[in-house]
Amino acid sequence: MMKTDWMFEPDSRHFVLEDYEAALARWCPGCGDHAVLNAVQKLCRDEQLPPEQTVMVSGIGCSSRFPHYMKTYGFHGLHGRALPVACGVRSRRPELNIFVSTGDGDCCSIGTAHWIHALRYNMNMVVMMFDNRVYGLTKNQTSPTSPKGESSNTHPQGAFLSPLNPISVCLSITNASFVAQTVDWNPVHLYETIRAGFEHQGLAFIRIFQRCPHFTDHAFKEFKDEPEKVLLMTHERGIPVNDTVKRVFTNSMQHDPADIDQAHKLARRDDVLPIGLFLRNDQSERYDEYTKRGVNMSNGEKLSALNRELDRFAI
């Protein structure tokens, strides 16, 4: 590739989509996960992220297979524990691009403690929570986001309780800095949301309504069939929307992501499905600003500091 000054740069690289494509995704045909994978690969290409500088971290579940399908570094770890790992990766590696894929069970059930604290740590990363309202990989059990009355193998007579609202939880966490919601069936809004999350400095939490054709095909049907039931939140500091998005989602409103009270109200709406950016706070503290301190200290500095500490115990 040529630079603008027409000097040939033998080491410069230009990445195309194939550079991010690994094993063929083994998700079911029609699974919303494919759409997210496409969006992330496109983002990597558009941002020209060197694959070796990019780390995909996940837990366990259908969506947590994500790293295997990206030709970057990946960490497919334990159920519910993607976030502590991702925070550990981030702690001493400020230069890496970190994406986390997690599901409604992984994040909002077994990993709840980490979810809450990771939002508070606010370390720079994109967290994509694939919400299909069901445990898919283990074959159809109720998830914390399953609607009341939803039938599953663990609740054949229907879920007893109303679902947990992940957005309300996120908005209530001290220091949360970016909370968004999008849907897998609109590639443009999906892409723009992940992109905005990537550009955000801090932890960007994105709940993605994701269709599971096998177990919860019906879950989002009404929103897909009747797009006016989707409420498009727009704002100059929100998720950018182009004309195609506006044409599909005609029901839209201005929401300032700095308005936390309105964000809470919107999160609680059950007559419509709000998509866009609920909350953005660029002033939130970032724990990674602290954890990276001293990363470049030389051995000489370390040894002389250690020597002084040993002096304190000297006899």
Partner: peptide, 26 residues
């Protein structure tokens, strides 16, 4: 901090080792 290190007090024992595993992996 004098040798460039830091103590992470995690939210629980599981997160404590998970964070360490992440840092080690990196």
């Amino acid at each position: 901090h004098k040798v460039g290190g830091f103590v992470h007090q995690a939210e629980d024992e599981i997160a404590a080792i998970g964070f360490a595993v992440g840092a080690s992996y990196a």
